[in-house]
């Protein structure tokens, strides 16, 4: 569904992505791991063009989204992102956060959008928070709302950028549980994470990045238990899996 070919991205003189190629199939749960600064998040952000690649192509369902004239909004609505810092709209309630984009972008009526939002809110166990403002929620609750908000758009792929990195330890599990539930529904998902145990558990494919290069890929079993590169072996040895 998504084919990334020879992707590169530089910020000024700093080259953060170097010749990255990978394919994401429909329904696949993909995890990208690697140390901080290895380019994981940038790669993810390139998929919905929050960063514009400097070279290479990304084919989204066969369409080149990097060098084409497709409206950027039409790409992003199909590849919604969940952020490390939630990025819920501070001036809107939980329900408004969830119905806003479906109404503005997908032209849903208020009733339709609300109905869909309430269903998803129930799935993340936050029905009682519909009319609260984000400032009243805990980190874990915010992230669950953010995930539900992205799902309201019915994106073709869900991008999650370190969704648990900013959470207090006791809130990590509630968010991971939601993501795990999602992974089992057949949704296409790309996840950047430092939660190795979780990555091992939910992924179909794991990619390991280092210094802007994609240096290792395979099933969780292959990457975690039989890494081919020295760099990956070192990285995995230095963390608890």
């Amino acid at each position: 569904m998504i084919e990334i070919q020879h992707l590169s991205k530089s910020f000024g003189n700093l080259e953060v992505l170097k010749d990255v190629s990978l394919t994401i199939n429909k329904g696949e749960v993909v995890t990208i791991i690697g140390s901080s600064g290895s380019g994981k998040s940038t790669l993810l952000r390139c998929i919905n063009l929050l960063e514009h690649p400097t070279g290479g192509t990304i084919l989204f369902e066969g369409q080149d989204i990097v060098n084409s004239k497709i409206k950027i909004e039409d790409i992003r609505k199909n590849a919604c992102m969940v952020f490390q810092h939630f990025n819920l709209f501070a001036n809107m309630t939980v329900l408004e956060n969830m119905t806003y984009a479906p109404r503005v972008v997908n032209k849903l009526s208020k009733v339709e959008a609300t109905e869909k939002a309430m269903k998803l809110l129930a799935k993340v166990n936050l029905s009682d928070k519909a009319n609260e403002y984000p400032s009243r929620l805990s980190g874990g609750q915010k992230q669950r709302v953010a995930i539900a908000r992205a799902l309201c758009m019915e994106p073709k792929v869900l991008l999650l950028d370190e969704p648990t990195s900013a959470l207090d330890p006791e809130m990590v599990k509630e968010v991971l549980d939601v993501i795990k539930q999602l992974a089992n529904t057949g949704i296409t998902m790309v996840l950047v994470t430092h939660e190795m145990g979780f990555a091992k558990d939910v992924s179909d494919t794991v990619y390991f990045m280092d210094g802007g290069y994609l240096i290792e890929s395979g099933t969780p079993e292959e990457v975690f238990n039989h890494p081919k590169t020295e760099r990956a072996r070192k990285f995995l040895a230095s963390i608890l899996v």
């Binding site: 952020f83 990025n87 984009a101 503005v104 972008v105």
Partner: peptide
Amino acid sequence: KGQWEGAMSLGVPKHRFLLDI
């Protein structure tokens, strides 16, 4: 900045989220 990115990542056009968010 996250407010801008949050809106952009959902495909909301700039003129709309400038006004609404």
